[in-house]
């Protein structure tokens, strides 16, 4: 029987996985929005706007869920993280606000004029900054060793995240999200020229992600020594590394042969494997080496109610999500080649 703390830690990891798979691709789409060029620039923008429109708000609620689980079940860790990583968290929050607002201002406005270009730029820029910060934050938490009584401002609030490892994690998150988004976007359109554009981008991003992954892995031996020793020296660690490499190679191969549905499946599996490997390596630490899911947890009664609330919540959430995606994403998820639907005029 799994204990309450582990159950809630798993819930955290599940939420994080969904957040990366859904909102991560949202951010990635924003990055491609920024990088869109060439004669089909407008079409690319249009495709991105259409693809994320109905689902972006729901995608980002995963983050709120992560924060509330952390805050209720592991309050000490939540407090420690928000003190030490105050600066990147604040910047992340600003990025999220600007991104969402800019998107809303652009797409729900009643008239259309030049100002929309500015909103688009703000949206794209914020899409670039937020995942980078998110990666930094996760990297800094992985590295751990938060100062208990810092002696200087630098030691207390900067030194933990201005390190090679968290910064590399930031870049990795950025590239990973872009990769996911490109692979998703191929299946969002019926237009073969757009598909070709995003196919090339997906291949580039996949290769970059693979290389960066190696760099992060290398830096992690220094920067996150508490956790990564296990990973490099054990059998399961070796299997996981092998697995991610296999999925990357397979995904690139399927992209070359234009088996987009399979390419996307491999990309998703690769992401899931990476996140869960990280979670497994992290276990039972929240912020190594002091805070584990046991030392930072709330009293048992709170955890019990929390688990009940999560179960009830999940029973409502997953059917609703299924309904949402069935309405808007049925074609692209199944990879069906219907006649293109008439695009709505914006």
């Amino acid at each position: 029987m799994i204990d309450l703390e582990t159950t809630l830690a798993i819930a955290l990891l599940v939420s994080l996985t969904f957040y990366v798979l859904m909102a991560g691709a949202d951010f990635g789409a924003g990055i491609w929005h920024l990088l869109a060029h060439g004669p089909s620039r407008r079409d690319q923008h249009h495709l991105i706007g259409e693809a994320i429109g109905p689902i972006w708000e729901a995608n980002h609620v995963w983050l709120i869920l992560i924060v509330t689980i952390l805050f209720t079940a592991f309050p000490t860790a939540y407090a420690q993280i928000s003190v030490t990583l105050h600066i990147p968290l604040t910047l992340l929050v600003i990025g999220i606000v600007l991104r969402g607002s800019a998107y809303a201002f652009r797409h729900y406005d009643i008239r259309h004029d030049e100002l929309h270009v500015r909103w688009d730029q703000l949206f794209a820029l914020a899409s670039l900054i937020s995942p980078f910060l998110l990666g930094i934050i996760i990297g800094a938490i992985t590295a751990g060793s938060f100062p208990i009584s810092p002696e200087s401002f630098f030691e207390g609030y900067l030194s933990n995240w201005l390190q090679p490892f968290p910064l590399a994690m930031g870049l990795l998150a950025l590239v990973f999200f872009a990769y996911l988004a490109a692979v998703y976007l191929i299946l969002e359109t019926q237009d073969s020229s757009l598909q070709e554009i995003f196919r090339k981008r997906a291949i580039t991003a996949a290769i970059c992600a693979g290389l960066l992954g190696e760099i992060v892995f290398f830096l992690g031996q220094e920067g996150a020594s508490y956790l990564w020793g296990d990973m490099t020296n054990s059998l399961w660690g070796g299997l996981i590394i092998f697995g991610t490499v296999v999925f990357t190679v397979a995904s690139v191969r399927f992209l070359f042969t234009r088996h987009y549905w399979w390419a996307r499946t491999c990309a998703i599996l690769q992401v899931i494997l990476t996140i869960w490997a990280w979670g497994l390596a992290q276990f039972p630490y929240l912020v190594p080496p002091y805070l584990t899911i046991y030392s930072a947890s709330s009293p048992a009664i709170t955890l019990q109610f929390m688990v009940i609330a999560l179960i009830v919540g999940a029973c409502l959430l997953f059917p609703s999500l299924y309904y949402l995606f069935r309405i808007f994403k049925e074609d692209s998820i199944l990879g069906l080649k219907h006649a293109p639907k008439k695009p709505a005029d914006t």
């Binding site: 729901a58 709120i64 209720t72 079940a73 009830v312 959430l317 949402l324």
Partner: peptide, 24 residues
Amino acid sequence: GPIIGLAFSIEGFAFFTEAIFLGI
């Protein structure tokens, strides 16, 4: 957190439902 965090978790799910059906 341990005392009143439950409220925020319920809120989180309510917000989720709201966002999903708002999209629809």
